[in-house]
Design a protein around this nucleic acid. Sequence first.
RNA 1: GGGAGUUUAGCUCAGCUGGUUCAGAGCAUCUGCCUUACAAGCAGAGGGUCGGGGGUUCGAACCCCUCAACUCCCA
Length: 875
Amino acid sequence: METPKIFEPGKIEEKWYAHWMEKGYFHSVPDNREPYTIVIPPPNITGVLHMGHMLNSTIQDVLIRRARMLGKNACWVPGTDHASIATEAKIVQKLKAEGIQKSDLTRDEFLGHAFKWKDKHGGIILEQLKKLGASCDWERTHFTMDKEYSESVVNVFIDLFNKGKIYRGVRMVNWDPEALTAVSDEEVIYKEVNSRLFYVRYKIDGLDDEWITIATTRPETILGDTAICVNPLDKRFIHLHGKSVIVPIANRIVPILTDDYVDMEFGTGCLKITPAHDINDYEIGRKFNLASIDLFNENGTLNEYGLHYQGVDRFEVRKLIEKELHETGFLSKTEDHINKVGFSERTKAVIEPKLSMQWFVDMKDLAKPALENVMNNSIQFYPEKFKNTYRHWMENVKDWCISRQLWWGHRIPAWYYGEGVNDFVVALTAEKAASLAQEKTGVAYKVEALRQDEDVLDTWFSSWLWPISVFNGLTQPNNPEINYYYPTNDLVTGPDIMFFWVARMVMAGYEYKGDMPFKNVYYTGIVRDKLGRKMSKSLGNSPDPIALIEQYGADGVRVGVLISSPAGNDLPFDTSQCEQGRNFTNKLWNVYRLVSAWEVVDFEQPHSANLAIDWFESKLNKTLLEINDAFDKFRISDALMLTYKLIWDDFCSWYLEIIKPGYEQPIDKLSKEVTIAFFEKLLILVHPFAPFITEELWHLIGNDKKENDIIVASWPKAGKIDDALLLNFNQCEEVVSNIRNIRKQQNIANKVKLALFVKGQVNGQLNFHSVIIKLGNLSTLEYINESMKGAFSFVLEGKEFFIPFGEEMDTAAEKDKILAELEYIKGFLKSVQGKLSNEKFVSSAPSSVVESEKKKEQDALSTIDILTKKIADLG
RNA sequence: GGGAGUUUAGCUCAGCUGGUUCAGAGCAUCUGCCUUACAAGCAGAGGGUCGGGGGUUCGAACCCCUCAACUCCCA
């Protein structure tokens, strides 16, 4: 059967993935090899593969596959994250569509629905990763709510509580009125929005017709005002110090305070204080011991303090109250104003600062080793610039609000036995809690009398244990696996979760293992569309990765995604890159087509082939060192590009063109064998990037019998590099290019054989004489002592090359060309001589630099000489 | 408001300690070729005051100052 001209990836991907799985190549168990471990950033259980995962996972797979080939015990641990808010929202939505309200369900009923859903639809994304070729150890797939994992999470909570690092208290938190839960500072996204500034008049109490005007963006919170504040230095208000005002609508009397927090320049210089609904007001409230009036219900509507607005949504109230203030004469004016508003990362709802009882982690001590070990490069960031961002966050780290008013997640192991603020204990089970409660109070409590905290923990409170818990390092400390695989090697993730996840894993690592969780962190960029927008589901600008794989092949997409994605830089993605990737796989395919079609006959190897083999061996070795170096520096795109060019340019365009026998000619045995050996090495180098086609070709070129697969082949070791040879070949390439150029300019068909004469070759032949004859399609290559008239010519390295004219020839054009060249060289000479005649340059520059300038001068002079003669010869 | 980063060819990016690795790569473009591995290809070519201005230096894409634009992080 004839080999198709075009590689068809769809036919082989599934076959090889199944084969790899069957052979258990992805599975790792501890042995005496060096471990190489990556834990996947666990995608949300509800997630589907998007371009970000694609980039991220491809990089991880490249690293894992190369490590495997380097003989390391490669282990890539996959899994999913329960993603409490996102998943709960999804389940609630799904139930709603079925006519079920969450509020109608008990906690257990709800969780029953959730788990049922998870079992059915969860983990689609892991199946999608398989299509990409991800060589994860699927036997190690973890889920952050697995039994043992959950135990770790809860135990860590208990431990930190017992160490005094977790506390419970009333604090100002970020409230998401849509998800009805508190969220952490990191989950709030601030955005500039066009809003309005309302100027509202408050009457001074006890004075006749004296008013003070405040400016606010949130008039609906007026009902919760408990003070007015001015800057003590503000002369405009000195006469009002110590007075009180009457809050409009609420008709409450509140004091006028002075504090230098107030910016005299902003608005009217007079600030209303609503301690329950603004973090800064809250601080002032604490300072002056103000009452705080919480106006809002959990869903963002007003409560009984909202008076006649009770039950109305906060944004609706803003409109209504504007109207009321206007009608009653309290509103003096409004202005357009741009301010920053916090939005929930998950639900996009406007965050409401709200006082509430929550659980917090005290971060100060945890942050110390985490900061130190990144700053001293024990943990290395790629690119390094992210160290700055990391340091800034760590140095200003705030306590972490970890309780969420949700059901989907790890329930907080706190048990309440009374109504007092401190009437609780923290324990793994109700039984233990009962005995602890008894210890604490001296009273015996029945298990049934205890109420467990209703809240669950922030998702990241489980994710931060990921590198430890996937090896059961907390439930079974010092088990052989954790001791072998931890610390892991590389973490590949986006900079957007540096604080959510990376920083906290580092903290947990030092707290619970006394060691870093990973050695290197590679931050990928954000995948953007052509217009520079972040690819997202809501914008609908993200291509479906699976459709891309079907169109271009997994290998093509992998190459396309990596071909221009330096660490930390955004990846502007365009499908044309996948096209390039696909073309590359097709190129590989055609190497096979060519080589496999060669018929072997036992005859002496042509000289040109012999030369080409020596040259390519050096070239391959040299490039291999460069590729390894690029990998060591996590310059993955560079490593790919080096591989790409080695194959496309050096191997295909030069090496194979030299080796290739003429049409229907056989090849000598040795050349074919060596060529296949080269091809095998090249396939190994491409394998991490394009696993499927390389496995297919590996078998097609004869490894089928040997019972081995490329996935476990050894990464080549670089052998000898002959630099002189490489240099000589460069000259050969230039000669050939010049010949081709003359052909092109003179419209000489490729089939027409040309004669080439060289002047200035003193001893023997040109390097690569036979190669030049073959690639230049020459009838003859001869050496002469005198310049030749009536010939095209070019100059390289002081040697003159001549190609005699055919019948007709455009001398004028040839002369113009030489004149232009002459002009350029003369300009060049002038600049070189300018340098050399500069006293200061000659005396201060290093002698090597001066020498090289002198050589340039000599070369230029002799070239000018040659060109001038040529022009004379042309007449 | 505070901090970090970026600005080099049409696009995406390399460019190390200031000097022959110095103005590069890939893609795109243009021009020839359906040359028996590949037109998803081959061969050639043209593209840049290295964001603007100033300075240091014998010498600056690289160091310093300044202005501008963009991106990200934090409040």
